[in-house]
Amino acid sequence: MWDYSEKVMEHFFNPKNMGVLEDANAVGMIGSIVCGDALKLFLKVDENNKILDASFQTFGCGSAIASSSMLTEMVKGKTLDEALSITNEDIAKALGGLPAEKMHCSVMGREALEAAIKTYRGEKVQEKEEDESRLVCRCFGVSENKIRKNIIENRLKTIQDVINYTKAGGGCTSCHTDIQDILNDVWKKDLSQEKEMKPSAEPKEKSIPLTNIQKIMKIQQVIEEDIKPALVVDGGSLELVDVEGNTVKVKMHGACSSCPSSSFTIKTFVQRILKEKVLPELEVVEVK
């Protein structure tokens, strides 16, 4: 038997807001009877985009019914934007947690909510067949987009995680290699993005040498656009005097000229920005 929390059992035995909401003006339906669970969410939204009332119909197990019931309680009184900020994890948390294998029930809640709000706003709801990404899991009709979205939102790391949250891969298992590829792709991309954050500080033109005139123009541009505005805040300014090779000669004006820490400013701020944006080899010196 599943280890359901008391909250889950409470919402299963005595579901709140079940049945059709007659004057609903936003309805979202997710899942199908073939897959084993489906949720139809009804919302009544007022002219200020506030959800006045909500109800549900669910075909599914105990935790699917409990998740639906909890979702309707959570969205009532919220604006559409506020409601959209509810994640599947929020639904699971409100229920005192769900068994890992049942997390897809909370995902279904979140998806039905999105579908209902999109319908209300006149946006296109991505039906499975309209989802342009490729169908990965044929047993449960789960697209690559849905799998990617859940991997990122719920930080899923293994095929079993993906099964628990999306059902993808829970049938014939023939798509497991595809799911692993997607997992590898998402997390590799994420890692490389982190790496790129630092390397990207280096100028992209690194490999293409600048001509002297290009270098001077670029330095002048960065001083005008990035450095001066920052110094102005402190009542100071700066002027480009000359460029000799990779040595940039600058003269400080205003508050900066008399500032005891002006050489510090030059080294830590001006030089750093110019190195980042123009050429890493640059050295900045102050001329009086």
């Binding site: 084993g36 669970d37 599914g60 197990c61 105990g62 935790s63 699917a64 294998e101 049942k102 047993c139 449960f140 099964i163 059902k167 829970g170 049938g171």
Partner: peptide, 8 residues
């Protein structure tokens, strides 16, 4: 499916 822990 749901009672057994599998999805099918």
């Amino acid at each position: 499916a749901c009672s057994s822990g599998s999805l099918e």
